[in-house]
Design a protein around this nucleic acid. Structure first.
Lengths: 241, 241
DNA sequence: TATCAAACTTGTATCGTACAAGTTACCACA
DNA sequence: TGTGGTAACTTGTACGATACAAGTTTGATA
C-alpha cells in the first residue's frame, strides 16, 4: 500500500533494536556514523529515521553527546493521539448524527463576508451514547454545497465529504452562555457555559470554503494542548470528553 | 550579529522582488530552476528560501503549477504572532500584575497528587490598561518555590523565573461559570462564562513542577488555532483578546 | 472537438561534503 | 595531585547534486 522508503525501513530496524534491547531510559545508541555504515545509508537518511523516532518520543539526542532512549514514555502515547479533527470524525462515525436543518439560505453577515451571500446551511446535533455531545452549524459555499444531499451530511462529516477539496483551517475557541434553543437541544440549563469553536476552512485554492460553529457543553468537554517546551509551540491539540 | 546564510540572502532578494514587483495576489514567480540559475544556488537552497517566505505567508505554491504571491495578507500577520505563552508573557510585562495571595499552603487534592502536599500558592490578577484581564492561580512545588519572593512573582512570570528548570507543558482548555469572588475580581457578572486553562508544567527532569489555572472573561478573550490541513496538526495556537 | 502525450512545474528521497558547536577523555604541566 | 588545554569524538545545519513521483499546461493528432 504505502510505498516504503529507505529511511522508514531503517527507522523500523532501529525501533526494533531499541525495544528488544535494554530499554533502560538513557541507554546510548550507536553514533550516526556507525549507523550509517551499518545500514549502508548516508548520514542524512539515518538522521531522518532517528528524527522520526524522536517524533514518537522513542529516542532523543543532545548535540555533542549522542542519541539515547527517550525518557518519557507518557508523552509518547500522548503525542500519538489524534488531533481534534480525527477525534471529531471518530466520534461522528461511532455515534448518531441528527440533522436539524438543511437548505440554502441567505448567509448571516459575518459569514457572507467569508463565503458569499448564498450558502448551504446545515445544523446538526451529534450524539454519543444517546447523549447530545455537540451542536454544529456549518455554512458551506454554494458551489461546494451543490453536490451534497441531506443524507450525505447525515452519514459523513463535511471534512470526509470534501477532503480533497479543502485546504487549511483556522479555529477560534471561546466560551458563551447557552441560549434557550441550544440549551434544550444539548440538554443543559439556559445560561450555562458552552465551549464554542468557530472554524474557517479554506479550499485547496486558498479561498474560504466552510464556516462552522461547534458548541460543546463545558461540563462534558475540554480541549487539551501539549506544549513541547515552556515557551514552545503546541505539539498536539485534542478534544477531551 | 546573526550569521547570514545563503538561503536567507536569497529569501531577502526574492522578498524584495515580490514586494516592489506587481503585488497582485496570484502573480507567478520564476520557476525554481530559473531562480536556481539566477542566484547561482542549488534548487535545495532556493526551496529553503521560498519555504521561509511561505512561512511568512508572502508566497505559496501548488505542485506542477509554480510559486505565486500569497493570497491572504491577513494570515501573514496572524502566523507571525507569538504563541500563547509569548503573548501571556508580553501581556504580563506591559501591564500591571496584582498579587492577591502568596504563601505556602496545604495543596488542594487534585494538585497534591501532582506536585506534593505542601506548595507555594500564588493568586494573581493580571490587568491590561487598568482592566482585569486574567485571574491566575499557580501552585508551585515546594522545592522550586523556596527561592521565590513575593516581589519576584509580581515582577515576572513563573516561566521567566524558572525558565531553565522547566520542561514541557500540558494545557486543558475548558469553560466554567464565574463564582462570586472571581466575578468581583474580573468585574463580570456572577455566572457569566469564563475560559479556563489548567496547565501542568514539568521540570527538566520530567517530574511535575507547576500546576496553574488561568481564568479569562469569555467576552474579552478567545483562543485561535491554525490547522495546516483539514485533518492536520495545529500549526499555531494563540490567545486572542 | 476531444484525447493523449510531451514538456514543463513542484514535492521528496537519496547520495555527498563541509563546518559549527557541544561533550568527553586524556595528557602535560604546575 | 589537581588543573587546564587539546584532540577526538559527537550532533546540528548549510549546501551541493541527482533521481524520480506527481500535478499542470500546452499542443499535436485523430
Amino acid at each position: 500500500m504505502a510505498r516504503s522508503f529507505r529511511y522508514q525501513e531503517i527507522a523500523e530496524s532501529i525501533r526494533g533494536d531499541v525495544e528488544k534491547g535494554v530499554l533502560a531510559t538513557g541507554a546510548l545508541l550507536p553514533s550516526e556514523s556507525e549507523l550509517s555504515a551499518a545500514h549502508d545509508a548516508s548520514r542524512v537518511t539515518i538522521r531522518k529515521a532517528l528524527e522520526q523516532l524522536r517524533g514518537e518520543g522513542l529516542v532523543d539526542s543532545r548535540q555533542g553527546f549522542g542519541w539515547f532512549v527517550g525518557s518519557s514514555p507518557i508523552r509518547q502515547s500522548l503525542d500519538s493521539l489524534e488531533t481534534i479533527e480525527g477525534q471529531l470524525a471518530e466520534a461522528g462515525r461511532s455515534s448518531e448524527r441528527r440533522v436539524l436543518q438543511f437548505g440554502f439560505v441567505q448567509a448571516p453577515v459575518e459569514v457572507e463576508a467569508l463565503v458569499g451571500a448564498e450558502v448551504l446551511e446545515v445544523k446538526r446535533l451529534n450524539l454519543a451514547d444517546g447523549e447530545p455531545f455537540a451542536y454544529v452549524t456549518v455554512w458551506c459555499k454554494a458551489s461546494l454545497g451543490a453536490d451534497l444531499s441531506r443524507s450525505d451530511v447525515e452519514e459523513s462529516t463535511f471534512v470526509d465529504l470534501l477532503l480533497d477539496r479543502l485546504g487549511h483551517a483556522t479555529q477560534v475557541i471561546s466560551a458563551i452562555a447557552a441560549d434557550a434553543a441550544i440549551a434544550v437541544a444539548l440538554k443543559v440549563d439556559e445560561g450555562s457555559p458552552l465551549l464554542r469553536v468557530r472554524r474557517v476552512t479554506t479550499d485547496s485554492a486558498g479561498g474560504n470554503a466552510l464556516v462552522s460553529e461547534h458548541l460543546y457543553p463545558a461540563r462534558r468537554t475540554e480541549f487539551e494542548v501539549t506544549l513541547s517546551g515552556p515557551t514552545g509551540e503546541p505539539a498536539g491539540l485534542r478534544l477531551v470528553e
